[in-house]
């Protein structure tokens, strides 16, 4: 029993150790580069997965794209250059934060328009009710 428990603990340790090694492989020239890598892999979506970013996904393509981003960061490419590189190949799908253009206008501004319409209707109804109650009060 104890032996089994011990081997289980060792196994868990082994798994953790593996994860730690996988993290250590990436070495950056500066802490800023490391931060850029973190932000980019967090903001770019894995093209294979519907709702995972590159950082979270272990799909083959996500691993490839992470290493591509790593290489580009170390090459001194700017964030915009790296994002453009990804968009040129995988389309705007890879952006977790959609760009502002005509095709995404409804997405970005639709909620505000709806809020405005809702607000107008609300004011109108309140105003009307008030007039009605004023009228009733006069009677």
């Amino acid at each position: 029993m104890i032996g089994r428990l011990l081997s289980l603990m060792l196994l868990t340790l082994g798994v953790w150790g593996g994860a730690a090694i996988a993290m250590e492989v990436l070495e950056f020239q500066t802490p800023e580069d490391q931060e850029r890598y973190r932000v980019l892999t967090e903001e770019l979506r894995c093209p294979k997965c519907q709702n995972q970013n590159l950082e979270d996904s272990n799909a083959g393509i996500a691993v490839d794209l992470r290493s591509q981003i790593y290489a580009m960061v170390n090459d001194g490419k700017s964030n915009q250059e790296i994002i453009d590189y990804m968009v040129a190949r995988y389309g705007e799908f890879v952006l977790y934060r959609p760009v502002h253009d005509s095709s995404t206008a409804v997405l970005w501004y639709g909620p505000f328009v709806l809020l405005l319409v809702g607000g107008l209707i609300f004011i109108l109804v309140v105003f009307k009710n008030k007039r009605q109650s004023d009228k009733d009060a006069k009677l």
Partner: peptide, 11 residues
Amino acid sequence: GRFGVDMGITG
């Protein structure tokens, strides 16, 4: 898989 990335394939 570099050419695959250039072609934008996912698998």
